[in-house]
């Protein structure tokens, strides 16, 4: 099966040919498989938003190629098909809702696709239910909370039946409650088979993804499962990225001499590990403290 998104030697230069030319992406190569759950992390100016906008032809490569489901984003006749396949949720929930009623807004995408009215109505119903906003369908968007607005925006994208959902810092402007709502929603959608690409600078949100891609200076610096990426604390530090709280705590404890496992990502996992250590210490043949010291030295 062909990969969903294939990025080949992508370089993007803003204001190319002018004195203000800025290279945002440099020779990026990337393949995203179907059904994957990918987090793209990176600091300000690392190029993560620029990369995201290449996935649905909102930006075109200065050099290189982006292939979405076998369609080249440079092909002007394929633009609408690509945008239907790769939907995008943006940062500010207020600036992406178009209509004055929730259900009308969700209908906006399918209406643009030219679907028959009853099919649109069915999709609006289904997708609002999928994001848990069905009871708000007759409300006006400005009366909703940030998390609710963002869920409506997600429903608006889902109603186009995309294969891939790209969230471009969609949790950045939300309060913790709203962030949780959105993260739970996208995790559920991913479980139902939608490919999710979550762009964020909140590292802790990357913990629950299956793959983490760290961008720095327009290049892919790290790429792998979270357990692997977050193990490389020193590399992340040199990229000026901070570890998420739990891996950071585990890293500190390990540095201070606790022989914790390498791939601790969640608080539950950390708790289990600590409980395991505590049991070992309480066990009659101690001396594990010595062992941990040497382990630390080796580290």
């Amino acid at each position: 099966m062909t990969p969903l998104i294939e990025v080949r030697n992508l370089t993007h230069v803003y204001n190319a040919g002018t004195p203000e030319a800025v290279t945002a992406l440099r020779e990026v190569n990337l393949t995203i498989g179907r059904g994957d759950f990918v987090a793209i992390v990176g600091g300000n100016g690392s190029g993560k938003s620029t990369l995201a906008k290449h996935f649905n032809a909102l930006l075109l490569p200065s050099e290189g190629e982006v292939i979405v489901d076998g369609l080249n984003t440079r092909d002007r006749s394929a633009v609408w098909e690509i945008r239907q396949r790769v939907g995008m949720v943006f940062q500010n929930p207020d600036n992406q809702l178009v209509a004055t009623l929730v259900e009308e807004d969700v209908a906006f995408g399918p209406e643009n696709l030219g679907l028959p009215p009853d099919e649109i109505a069915r999709r609006v119903q289904d997708t609002l239910a999928a994001v848990g906003m069905l009871e708000h369908r007759r409300r006006e968007p400005h009366l909703l909370s940030g998390g609710q607005k963002q869920r409506v925006a997600i429903a608006g994208i889902l109603a186009m039946r995309p294969q891939c959902l790209v969230l471009d810092e969609a949790t950045t402007m939300l309060d913790p409650q709203g962030q949780r709502e959105v993260l739970e929603t996208i995790a559920r959608l991913n479980a139902q088979g939608v490919t999710v690409i979550h762009i964020t600078h909140a590292m802790e949100e990357a913990v629950h993804c299956r793959r983490v891609i760290a961008l720095a200076d327009g290049r892919i610096a790290l790429d792998g499962p979270p357990a692997e990426v977050f193990r490389r604390a020193e590399d992340l530090k040199s990229l000026r990225l901070v570890l998420p709280p739990v891996p950071a705590l585990a890293h500190r404890l390990r540095r201070d001499g606790l022989p914790l496992g390498q791939s601790i990502l969640t608080i539950d996992h950390l708790e289990d590990e600590l409980a395991r250590l505590a049991r070992q210490r309480l066990a009659p043949r101690s001396g594990s403290g010595e062992a941990s010291e040497t382990a630390d030295g080796a580290h």
Binding site: R83, G87, M88, F90, N95, N112, I157
Partner: peptide, 11 residues
Amino acid sequence: ELALAMEARCY
């Protein structure tokens, strides 16, 4: 931003 979001939704 709205224009971008509308384009992304195939408008």
